[in-house]
Nucleic acid binder design. Structure first.
Lengths: 189, 189
DNA sequence: GGCTAACCGGGGCGCACGTTCCGTATAGTA
DNA sequence: TACTATACGGAACGTGCGCCCCGGTTAGCC
Protein backbone atom coordinates (compact mmCIF):
# COMPACT_ATOMS: atom_id res chain seq x y z
CA UNK A 1 0.00 0.00 0.00
CA UNK A 2 2.65 2.53 1.01
CA UNK A 3 4.83 2.02 -2.00
CA UNK A 4 7.60 4.39 -0.92
CA UNK A 5 10.53 2.83 0.89
CA UNK A 6 11.78 5.13 3.62
CA UNK A 7 15.51 5.57 3.45
CA UNK A 8 17.17 5.48 6.88
CA UNK A 9 17.98 8.92 8.26
CA UNK A 10 21.52 10.09 8.65
CA UNK A 11 22.69 10.08 12.27
CA UNK A 12 22.64 13.86 12.72
CA UNK A 13 19.24 14.03 11.09
CA UNK A 14 17.81 11.50 13.48
CA UNK A 15 19.31 13.36 16.44
CA UNK A 16 17.89 16.68 15.32
CA UNK A 17 14.49 15.21 14.68
CA UNK A 18 14.37 13.87 18.21
CA UNK A 19 15.57 17.16 19.68
CA UNK A 20 12.90 19.11 17.81
CA UNK A 21 10.18 16.70 18.85
CA UNK A 22 11.19 16.82 22.49
CA UNK A 23 11.55 20.59 22.56
CA UNK A 24 8.25 21.14 20.78
CA UNK A 25 6.53 18.83 23.22
CA UNK A 26 7.78 20.77 26.21
CA UNK A 27 7.22 24.21 24.73
CA UNK A 28 3.72 23.50 23.44
CA UNK A 29 2.74 21.96 26.75
CA UNK A 30 4.06 24.89 28.75
CA UNK A 31 3.02 27.80 26.55
CA UNK A 32 0.44 26.56 24.09
CA UNK A 33 0.37 26.31 20.32
CA UNK A 34 0.97 30.02 19.83
CA UNK A 35 4.72 29.65 20.08
CA UNK A 36 6.36 30.32 16.68
CA UNK A 37 8.29 27.61 14.90
CA UNK A 38 11.38 29.81 14.85
CA UNK A 39 11.30 29.89 18.63
CA UNK A 40 11.07 26.12 18.87
CA UNK A 41 13.95 25.79 16.43
CA UNK A 42 16.01 28.22 18.47
CA UNK A 43 15.40 26.37 21.72
CA UNK A 44 16.18 23.07 20.08
CA UNK A 45 19.42 24.53 18.81
CA UNK A 46 18.65 24.07 15.12
CA UNK A 47 17.58 26.26 12.21
CA UNK A 48 13.99 26.74 11.17
CA UNK A 49 14.72 24.93 7.93
CA UNK A 50 15.60 21.80 9.86
CA UNK A 51 12.26 21.77 11.60
CA UNK A 52 10.47 22.03 8.28
CA UNK A 53 12.54 19.28 6.71
CA UNK A 54 11.29 16.83 9.31
CA UNK A 55 7.78 18.18 9.70
CA UNK A 56 6.35 19.80 6.57
CA UNK A 57 4.02 21.98 8.54
CA UNK A 58 3.46 23.26 12.05
CA UNK A 59 0.36 21.15 12.26
CA UNK A 60 2.32 18.04 11.29
CA UNK A 61 4.75 18.70 14.10
CA UNK A 62 2.01 19.00 16.65
CA UNK A 63 0.24 15.98 15.25
CA UNK A 64 3.35 13.86 15.72
CA UNK A 65 3.35 14.84 19.38
CA UNK A 66 -0.32 14.15 19.85
CA UNK A 67 -0.18 10.75 18.20
CA UNK A 68 2.55 9.81 20.63
CA UNK A 69 0.53 10.94 23.63
CA UNK A 70 -2.64 9.25 22.48
CA UNK A 71 -0.82 5.96 22.06
CA UNK A 72 0.46 6.21 25.61
CA UNK A 73 -3.00 7.00 26.90
CA UNK A 74 -4.49 4.04 25.08
CA UNK A 75 -1.89 1.76 26.64
CA UNK A 76 -2.61 3.14 30.07
CA UNK A 77 -6.32 2.68 29.54
CA UNK A 78 -5.81 -0.97 28.61
CA UNK A 79 -3.62 -1.63 31.61
CA UNK A 80 -6.15 -0.06 33.91
CA UNK A 81 -8.97 -2.06 32.36
CA UNK A 82 -7.05 -5.28 32.97
CA UNK A 83 -5.86 -4.54 36.47
CA UNK A 84 -8.15 -2.40 38.60
CA UNK A 85 -11.78 -2.92 39.48
CA UNK A 86 -14.11 -1.41 36.86
CA UNK A 87 -15.16 1.70 38.75
CA UNK A 88 -11.70 2.48 39.97
CA UNK A 89 -10.21 1.88 36.54
CA UNK A 90 -12.66 4.26 34.89
CA UNK A 91 -12.20 7.06 37.36
CA UNK A 92 -8.43 6.66 37.44
CA UNK A 93 -8.39 7.18 33.71
CA UNK A 94 -10.78 10.09 34.01
CA UNK A 95 -8.45 11.76 36.50
CA UNK A 96 -5.48 11.11 34.27
CA UNK A 97 -7.16 12.78 31.33
CA UNK A 98 -8.50 15.78 33.18
CA UNK A 99 -5.25 16.48 34.99
CA UNK A 100 -3.57 16.68 31.60
CA UNK A 101 -5.38 19.96 31.06
CA UNK A 102 -3.51 21.55 33.92
CA UNK A 103 -0.10 20.50 32.65
CA UNK A 104 -0.52 20.62 28.90
CA UNK A 105 -1.63 23.93 27.50
CA UNK A 106 -1.08 22.81 23.93
CA UNK A 107 -3.64 20.08 24.39
CA UNK A 108 -6.31 22.50 25.50
CA UNK A 109 -5.40 24.88 22.70
CA UNK A 110 -5.75 22.11 20.18
CA UNK A 111 -9.14 21.09 21.51
CA UNK A 112 -10.42 24.63 21.51
CA UNK A 113 -8.65 25.98 18.44
CA UNK A 114 -10.08 26.07 15.01
CA UNK A 115 -6.73 25.35 13.49
CA UNK A 116 -6.05 21.70 13.87
CA UNK A 117 -8.53 18.97 13.23
CA UNK A 118 -6.82 16.31 15.27
CA UNK A 119 -9.48 13.66 15.11
CA UNK A 120 -9.78 13.86 11.35
CA UNK A 121 -6.01 13.67 10.92
CA UNK A 122 -5.44 10.45 12.82
CA UNK A 123 -8.59 8.35 12.53
CA UNK A 124 -7.01 5.06 13.56
CA UNK A 125 -5.56 6.46 16.79
CA UNK A 126 -8.82 8.20 17.53
CA UNK A 127 -10.59 4.89 17.04
CA UNK A 128 -8.21 3.02 19.29
CA UNK A 129 -8.68 5.66 21.94
CA UNK A 130 -12.43 5.43 21.76
CA UNK A 131 -12.36 1.66 21.85
CA UNK A 132 -10.16 1.63 24.93
CA UNK A 133 -12.39 4.15 26.61
CA UNK A 134 -15.53 2.29 25.67
CA UNK A 135 -14.11 -0.76 27.34
CA UNK A 136 -13.47 1.14 30.55
CA UNK A 137 -16.89 2.74 30.39
CA UNK A 138 -19.06 -0.30 29.78
CA UNK A 139 -17.32 -2.27 32.51
CA UNK A 140 -17.80 0.56 34.97
CA UNK A 141 -21.44 0.84 33.96
CA UNK A 142 -21.97 -2.89 34.31
CA UNK A 143 -20.47 -2.70 37.79
CA UNK A 144 -22.87 0.10 38.68
CA UNK A 145 -20.11 2.66 39.17
CA UNK A 146 -21.18 4.98 36.35
CA UNK A 147 -24.66 6.03 35.27
CA UNK A 148 -25.87 3.85 32.44
CA UNK A 149 -27.04 6.48 30.00
CA UNK A 150 -23.77 8.24 29.22
CA UNK A 151 -21.89 7.40 26.03
CA UNK A 152 -18.23 7.38 25.14
CA UNK A 153 -18.71 10.68 23.32
CA UNK A 154 -20.31 12.17 26.42
CA UNK A 155 -17.40 11.15 28.60
CA UNK A 156 -14.89 12.49 26.11
CA UNK A 157 -16.70 15.81 26.03
CA UNK A 158 -16.74 15.94 29.80
CA UNK A 159 -13.02 15.32 29.83
CA UNK A 160 -12.42 18.18 27.42
CA UNK A 161 -14.52 20.47 29.55
CA UNK A 162 -12.65 19.44 32.69
CA UNK A 163 -9.33 20.13 31.00
CA UNK A 164 -10.54 23.60 30.16
CA UNK A 165 -11.64 24.08 33.77
CA UNK A 166 -8.22 23.05 35.02
CA UNK A 167 -6.49 25.44 32.71
CA UNK A 168 -8.77 28.46 33.04
CA UNK A 169 -10.18 27.81 36.45
CA UNK A 170 -9.30 31.08 38.18
CA UNK A 171 -9.82 30.88 41.91
CA UNK A 172 -11.75 27.64 41.90
CA UNK A 173 -10.46 24.62 43.79
CA UNK A 174 -9.49 22.17 41.03
CA UNK A 175 -10.07 19.13 43.20
CA UNK A 176 -13.59 20.16 44.16
CA UNK A 177 -14.57 21.05 40.62
CA UNK A 178 -13.45 17.67 39.33
CA UNK A 179 -15.17 16.01 42.25
CA UNK A 180 -18.44 17.58 41.18
CA UNK A 181 -18.16 16.15 37.69
CA UNK A 182 -17.10 12.74 38.95
CA UNK A 183 -20.07 12.73 41.28
CA UNK A 184 -22.34 13.58 38.39
CA UNK A 185 -21.11 10.55 36.52
CA UNK A 186 -22.22 8.20 39.29
CA UNK A 187 -25.57 6.47 38.88
CA UNK A 188 -28.66 8.40 39.96
CA UNK A 189 -29.54 7.81 43.57
CA UNK B 1 -12.91 61.78 39.64
CA UNK B 2 -13.35 61.51 35.87
CA UNK B 3 -12.45 65.10 35.12
CA UNK B 4 -13.15 64.91 31.39
CA UNK B 5 -16.60 65.94 30.27
CA UNK B 6 -17.80 63.74 27.42
CA UNK B 7 -19.07 65.84 24.56
CA UNK B 8 -22.25 64.46 22.97
CA UNK B 9 -21.63 62.56 19.74
CA UNK B 10 -22.78 63.85 16.41
CA UNK B 11 -25.80 61.99 15.04
CA UNK B 12 -23.91 60.07 12.35
CA UNK B 13 -21.21 59.16 14.83
CA UNK B 14 -23.75 57.73 17.24
CA UNK B 15 -25.39 55.78 14.44
CA UNK B 16 -22.11 54.31 13.26
CA UNK B 17 -21.04 53.42 16.76
CA UNK B 18 -24.24 51.46 17.27
CA UNK B 19 -23.91 49.73 13.91
CA UNK B 20 -20.35 48.65 14.69
CA UNK B 21 -21.30 47.39 18.11
CA UNK B 22 -24.21 45.39 16.81
CA UNK B 23 -22.25 43.92 13.90
CA UNK B 24 -19.29 43.04 16.09
CA UNK B 25 -21.59 41.34 18.56
CA UNK B 26 -23.11 39.13 15.89
CA UNK B 27 -19.87 38.36 14.09
CA UNK B 28 -17.89 37.57 17.22
CA UNK B 29 -20.65 35.35 18.50
CA UNK B 30 -20.95 33.47 15.24
CA UNK B 31 -17.31 33.16 14.24
CA UNK B 32 -15.17 33.92 17.26
CA UNK B 33 -12.66 36.62 18.02
CA UNK B 34 -10.43 35.71 15.09
CA UNK B 35 -12.43 37.85 12.69
CA UNK B 36 -10.37 40.88 11.55
CA UNK B 37 -11.50 44.39 12.36
CA UNK B 38 -11.53 45.26 8.67
CA UNK B 39 -14.09 42.54 8.13
CA UNK B 40 -16.32 43.85 10.89
CA UNK B 41 -16.03 47.34 9.47
CA UNK B 42 -16.96 46.07 6.03
CA UNK B 43 -20.03 44.23 7.29
CA UNK B 44 -21.06 47.24 9.31
CA UNK B 45 -20.75 49.38 6.21
CA UNK B 46 -18.09 51.71 7.60
CA UNK B 47 -14.34 52.16 7.25
CA UNK B 48 -11.82 50.61 9.58
CA UNK B 49 -10.85 54.05 10.80
CA UNK B 50 -14.36 54.57 12.07
CA UNK B 51 -14.20 51.45 14.17
CA UNK B 52 -10.95 52.59 15.74
CA UNK B 53 -12.25 56.06 16.44
CA UNK B 54 -14.98 54.61 18.64
CA UNK B 55 -13.00 51.72 20.08
CA UNK B 56 -9.28 52.41 20.40
CA UNK B 57 -8.43 48.75 20.22
CA UNK B 58 -9.93 45.45 19.20
CA UNK B 59 -9.95 44.42 22.82
CA UNK B 60 -11.86 47.56 23.76
CA UNK B 61 -14.51 46.71 21.19
CA UNK B 62 -14.96 43.24 22.53
CA UNK B 63 -14.93 44.50 26.08
CA UNK B 64 -17.80 46.88 25.33
CA UNK B 65 -19.81 43.91 24.13
CA UNK B 66 -18.97 41.77 27.11
CA UNK B 67 -19.80 44.49 29.61
CA UNK B 68 -23.20 44.76 28.01
CA UNK B 69 -23.82 41.03 28.22
CA UNK B 70 -22.62 40.77 31.79
CA UNK B 71 -24.97 43.52 32.85
CA UNK B 72 -27.87 41.67 31.31
CA UNK B 73 -26.85 38.46 33.01
CA UNK B 74 -26.62 40.17 36.36
CA UNK B 75 -30.11 41.55 35.94
CA UNK B 76 -31.43 38.15 34.99
CA UNK B 77 -29.74 36.59 38.01
CA UNK B 78 -31.36 39.13 40.31
CA UNK B 79 -34.79 38.57 38.83
CA UNK B 80 -34.43 34.84 39.19
CA UNK B 81 -33.28 35.19 42.77
CA UNK B 82 -36.36 37.26 43.59
CA UNK B 83 -38.91 35.15 41.77
CA UNK B 84 -38.22 31.44 41.58
CA UNK B 85 -37.55 28.98 44.37
CA UNK B 86 -33.87 28.84 45.31
CA UNK B 87 -32.95 25.57 43.62
CA UNK B 88 -34.86 26.33 40.46
CA UNK B 89 -33.41 29.84 40.31
CA UNK B 90 -29.86 28.57 40.61
CA UNK B 91 -30.20 25.89 37.98
CA UNK B 92 -32.07 28.16 35.59
CA UNK B 93 -29.19 30.55 35.72
CA UNK B 94 -26.73 27.73 35.32
CA UNK B 95 -28.51 26.60 32.18
CA UNK B 96 -28.59 30.13 30.86
CA UNK B 97 -24.87 30.51 31.27
CA UNK B 98 -23.90 27.16 29.85
CA UNK B 99 -26.15 27.44 26.85
CA UNK B 100 -24.37 30.67 25.98
CA UNK B 101 -21.34 28.59 25.03
CA UNK B 102 -23.26 26.97 22.22
CA UNK B 103 -24.42 30.24 20.71
CA UNK B 104 -21.52 32.57 21.43
CA UNK B 105 -18.20 31.50 20.07
CA UNK B 106 -16.55 34.77 20.99
CA UNK B 107 -17.33 34.19 24.63
CA UNK B 108 -15.61 30.82 24.64
CA UNK B 109 -12.66 32.28 22.73
CA UNK B 110 -12.32 35.02 25.27
CA UNK B 111 -12.40 32.60 28.16
CA UNK B 112 -9.83 30.33 26.57
CA UNK B 113 -7.69 32.89 24.79
CA UNK B 114 -4.59 34.43 26.18
CA UNK B 115 -5.40 37.73 24.61
CA UNK B 116 -8.02 39.43 26.68
CA UNK B 117 -8.08 39.63 30.40
CA UNK B 118 -11.75 40.33 30.78
CA UNK B 119 -12.00 40.07 34.52
CA UNK B 120 -9.11 42.43 35.14
CA UNK B 121 -10.52 44.98 32.69
CA UNK B 122 -13.95 45.37 34.27
CA UNK B 123 -13.58 44.72 37.99
CA UNK B 124 -16.85 46.33 39.04
CA UNK B 125 -18.94 44.30 36.58
CA UNK B 126 -17.09 41.17 37.56
CA UNK B 127 -17.87 41.93 41.17
CA UNK B 128 -21.54 42.53 40.50
CA UNK B 129 -21.69 39.27 38.62
CA UNK B 130 -20.08 37.36 41.45
CA UNK B 131 -22.35 38.98 44.01
CA UNK B 132 -25.46 38.08 42.07
CA UNK B 133 -24.25 34.57 41.64
CA UNK B 134 -23.30 34.22 45.28
CA UNK B 135 -26.82 35.20 46.18
CA UNK B 136 -28.26 32.49 43.97
CA UNK B 137 -25.78 29.96 45.26
CA UNK B 138 -26.16 30.47 49.00
CA UNK B 139 -29.94 30.41 48.77
CA UNK B 140 -29.84 27.19 46.79
CA UNK B 141 -27.41 25.71 49.28
CA UNK B 142 -29.56 26.77 52.22
CA UNK B 143 -32.52 25.10 50.54
CA UNK B 144 -30.53 21.90 50.16
CA UNK B 145 -30.60 22.03 46.36
CA UNK B 146 -26.84 22.40 45.88
CA UNK B 147 -23.99 20.72 47.73
CA UNK B 148 -22.75 22.93 50.50
CA UNK B 149 -19.02 22.84 49.82
CA UNK B 150 -18.87 24.48 46.41
CA UNK B 151 -17.92 28.15 46.14
CA UNK B 152 -18.87 30.86 43.68
CA UNK B 153 -15.50 30.43 41.97
CA UNK B 154 -16.14 26.71 41.61
CA UNK B 155 -19.49 27.28 39.99
CA UNK B 156 -18.06 29.87 37.63
CA UNK B 157 -15.34 27.47 36.58
CA UNK B 158 -17.88 24.75 36.01
CA UNK B 159 -19.86 27.12 33.81
CA UNK B 160 -16.80 27.89 31.73
CA UNK B 161 -16.08 24.22 31.31
CA UNK B 162 -19.67 23.55 30.29
CA UNK B 163 -19.51 26.31 27.71
CA UNK B 164 -16.43 24.69 26.24
CA UNK B 165 -18.24 21.35 26.19
CA UNK B 166 -21.16 22.87 24.35
CA UNK B 167 -18.92 24.42 21.76
CA UNK B 168 -16.45 21.59 21.21
CA UNK B 169 -18.59 18.67 22.18
CA UNK B 170 -18.33 16.59 19.03
CA UNK B 171 -20.85 13.76 19.03
CA UNK B 172 -21.83 14.08 22.66
CA UNK B 173 -25.43 14.81 23.59
CA UNK B 174 -25.33 18.36 25.01
CA UNK B 175 -28.34 17.82 27.22
CA UNK B 176 -26.94 14.70 28.86
CA UNK B 177 -23.51 16.22 29.40
CA UNK B 178 -25.00 19.21 31.16
CA UNK B 179 -27.27 16.93 33.12
CA UNK B 180 -24.22 15.14 34.47
CA UNK B 181 -22.70 18.35 35.76
CA UNK B 182 -25.98 19.56 37.24
CA UNK B 183 -26.37 16.23 38.99
CA UNK B 184 -22.87 16.58 40.40
CA UNK B 185 -23.81 19.91 41.91
CA UNK B 186 -26.62 18.36 43.96
CA UNK B 187 -25.90 17.48 47.58
CA UNK B 188 -24.23 14.14 48.24
CA UNK B 189 -26.72 11.35 48.76
C1' DG C 1 -26.68 79.34 2.56
C1' DG C 2 -22.19 79.49 4.70
C1' DC C 3 -18.79 78.15 8.20
C1' DT C 4 -16.31 75.10 11.12
C1' DA C 5 -15.53 71.43 14.05
C1' DA C 6 -16.40 66.74 14.05
C1' DC C 7 -16.43 62.70 11.51
C1' DC C 8 -15.62 59.45 7.62
C1' DG C 9 -13.18 56.06 4.47
C1' DG C 10 -9.69 53.32 3.13
C1' DG C 11 -4.88 53.20 1.80
C1' DG C 12 -0.62 52.29 4.09
C1' DC C 13 2.78 51.09 7.79
C1' DG C 14 4.95 47.83 10.78
C1' DC C 15 5.25 43.54 12.71
C1' DA C 16 4.79 38.65 13.44
C1' DC C 17 4.76 34.29 11.68
C1' DG C 18 4.56 30.19 8.43
C1' DT C 19 7.13 28.57 4.81
C1' DT C 20 10.80 28.28 1.19
C1' DC C 21 15.39 28.55 -0.82
C1' DC C 22 20.11 27.96 -1.41
C1' DG C 23 24.97 28.24 -0.32
C1' DT C 24 27.62 25.68 3.07
C1' DA C 25 28.92 21.78 6.06
C1' DT C 26 29.21 17.01 7.19
C1' DA C 27 28.14 11.86 7.63
C1' DG C 28 28.89 7.86 5.28
C1' DT C 29 31.59 5.23 1.96
C1' DA C 30 35.40 3.45 -0.98
C1' DT D 1 41.63 10.86 2.11
C1' DA D 2 38.48 12.12 -1.42
C1' DC D 3 33.88 12.19 -3.03
C1' DT D 4 28.85 12.78 -2.91
C1' DA D 5 24.38 12.45 -1.23
C1' DT D 6 22.25 14.26 2.56
C1' DA D 7 21.33 17.57 5.94
C1' DC D 8 22.04 22.14 8.00
C1' DG D 9 21.14 27.16 9.13
C1' DG D 10 19.17 31.29 8.68
C1' DA D 11 18.15 35.00 5.43
C1' DA D 12 14.32 36.16 2.67
C1' DC D 13 9.50 36.08 1.02
C1' DG D 14 4.46 36.37 1.25
C1' DT D 15 0.51 37.02 3.90
C1' DG D 16 -2.56 38.63 7.31
C1' DC D 17 -3.84 41.76 10.59
C1' DG D 18 -3.82 45.53 14.17
C1' DC D 19 -3.53 50.25 14.03
C1' DC D 20 -2.62 55.12 12.19
C1' DC D 21 -3.04 59.01 9.05
C1' DC D 22 -4.91 62.44 6.14
C1' DG D 23 -7.56 64.42 2.34
C1' DG D 24 -12.36 64.73 1.73
C1' DT D 25 -17.25 65.00 3.60
C1' DT D 26 -21.05 66.28 6.53
C1' DA D 27 -23.80 67.55 10.70
C1' DG D 28 -24.90 71.25 13.50
C1' DC D 29 -25.23 76.13 14.14
C1' DC D 30 -25.53 81.24 12.74
Amino acid sequence: MTGETVRPLRADARRNRAKVLQTAYEVFAAEGLGVPIDEIARRAGVGAGTVYRHFPTKEALYLAIVVDRVDHLVNTARELAAAADPGEAFFSFFDLMTTAGATDKGLVDALAGEGFDIEAAMPEHEQAFKDAMRDLLVRAQAAGAVRADVTVADVKTLMVGCQAMQRYGGDAAPARVLEVVREGLRPAR
